[in-house]
Amino acid sequence: MAIRINGAEIAVPDDARVSLLGLLREQLHLTGTKVGCNQGACGACTVLIDGERVLSCLTLAVQADERSVTTIEGLSGAGSHKLQDAFIEHDGLQCGYCTPGQICAADAMLREIAAGVPSYITADLAAPARLTREEVRERMSGNLCRCGAHNGIVDAILQVAAERTA
């Protein structure tokens, strides 16, 4: 039984109560993944499992068995990820606590749009989902920010998306 976390094989913890979040932060010291509510209400603990965004506080570590987890520390590899650079450029952060979750969510969210997955506000469910400011705002609404960096976060995501399609 093992979980692949940022490329490393990690044994599944014995205590079945341990959340993926707890495993990352307390046992592996991967503290880039944050905890804001422990009940799936804030998005600070967002990580990627097989490229899809999940709330690691609501995911038991055992559920990630045999799967591949990417955290903020693993997102960029050695260098920095384009989203990370864009967040700095657009000042899409202040205290920085919700930031890793926002970036992980944005990374997966852009793939969701590219795959044509509609959102609650997508008007035409038959046509491919379009990447608009409104769509980004809706799709990022599970990631709370209290400092109020929302405008910068959306600007950063739109810039990265525009560069990808350019």
Partner: peptide
């Protein structure tokens, strides 16, 4: 100027109070 602590925060390396081993 961009904030100086930006790189530490976007990479998850900025260490908060509950994160000191």
């Amino acid at each position: 100027d961009s904030r100086l602590d930006g790189p530490a925060k976007v990479t998850g390396l900025a260490r908060f109070a509950a994160e000191v081993p």
